[in-house]
């Protein structure tokens, strides 16, 4: 089962990560909101409007995503360490 799991994960990672090269080309990778949600909404007579707080201006959005990723990653790592590393006791892992 381990082999199957490893093969599945590796296959999917390679499948998805093959998009890395395409990222470097000028071709845009549209989000699914653009090609499905907004397209269908537009076809059905509703257009998306700008967000009330529009941070999609220049590189501001990229900065905010980087910040959100850093803060989210820090919080996740901090509590992960607290629970699964510092909080680990020998008797807890007894199988």
């Amino acid at each position: 089962m381990r082999r199957l799991m490893a093969a599945l994960v590796l296959g999917l990672v390679l499948f998805c990560a093959s998009g890395l090269q395409a990222q470097e080309s000028p071709a845009k990778w549209p989000g699914i909101d653009e090609i499905v949600v907004e397209k269908f909404a537009s076809d059905l007579g509703r257009e998306a409007r700008d967000p009330y707080i529009n941070t999609d201006q220049g590189d501001l959005l990229l900065f905010l995503f980087a910040l959100a990723g850093s803060v989210g990653g820090f919080v996740m790592g901090y509590f992960w360490h607290k629970v699964f590393v510092a909080g680990r006791r020998p008797e807890d892992t007894r199988e």
Binding site: V9, G19, E47
Partner: peptide
Amino acid sequence: FFALSALLLALPARALAMHISEGILP
């Protein structure tokens, strides 16, 4: 497994995704 998953999350893609966008719902 976790390292590869983290690699996927770190891919530098533009911030477009799936939630229903502002103003679409009446």
